[in-house]
Amino acid sequence: MTTQTPTGIGKLFAVACLIEGLTWTGLLIGMFLKYVTDTTDLGVWLFGRLHGVAFMFYVVVAVLSALRLRWPWWASAIAVLAAVPPLVTIPVEIWFQRRGFLTEKPAAQS
């Protein structure tokens, strides 16, 4: 287990996790305001669109990260599936950073 600072695609993955999590939060707050308090549907209108774009961005970045950083199949699956339940991408990013999945491995010398 290492906690090196991510660079390149690892840093992009961390940013994508944060954006996906923040837009999920906005969408959940918007849904609360629309369906529970019956105040406004502006939050759902705005964050629904933002989250849709963030979700697609996150999935593309997760797949590219898995390929570039050579994640095992199970880590790749966890990264992609983390986008489905609310707010799971943020703890997954923290866990991946602690496991050293967000830093590039040195090239093997022959």
Rank of each mutant, 00 (worst) to 15 (best):
F47K: 09
F32A: 11
G100I: 09
G52T: 13
L22S: 02
A62M: 06
V92Y: 00
A107C: 04
T7E: 12
M31R: 08
V59P: 05
A14I: 02
E104S: 15
V61H: 00
V60D: 05
R99F: 04
V84A: 11
V88W: 15
G21Y: 01
L33N: 13
L46M: 08
W73R: 10
T7A: 10
G21V: 02
T23R: 10
L18H: 00
G26V: 04
A54L: 13
T89R: 14
A75P: 06
L46G: 01
P106C: 04
T25M: 14
F96M: 15
A66K: 02
W24H: 11
V63G: 05
G8F: 02
L102W: 05
V80K: 06
V88E: 07
Y35P: 01
T89V: 11
L42I: 03
F13V: 05
T7I: 09
P6Q: 09
T5A: 11
L27M: 09
T89D: 10
E93F: 01
V36A: 09
H51I: 13
P85T: 08
R49A: 13
L33A: 11
A75D: 11
T37G: 03
Q97H: 13
T39P: 05
T7C: 01
G43Y: 03
V92Q: 11
G8S: 03
P86F: 14
G52W: 01
A62S: 14
W71Y: 10
K34V: 04
A16M: 10
L12M: 08
M1H: 14
I78T: 14
I94V: 14
K105Q: 15
A14S: 12
T5H: 06
W95T: 03
S65E: 10
T40A: 07
L64Q: 03
S110C: 00
Q97C: 04
R70Q: 13
Y58D: 07
G43R: 05
I9W: 12
A108N: 06
Q109F: 02
T89M: 14
M31V: 09
I19Q: 04
G43N: 05
P6A: 07
I90C: 07
L28C: 14
V63I: 15
Q4Y: 08
G100A: 07
V53N: 05
A16F: 05
V59R: 07
L28I: 13
G48A: 13
W95F: 07
V59W: 08
T7L: 07
C17N: 07
G30N: 00
T3S: 08
R98Q: 14
I90R: 02
L87K: 11
L50K: 01
W73F: 06
I94R: 10
A108K: 11
C17Q: 08
V36T: 13
F13I: 09
A82N: 06
L18W: 00
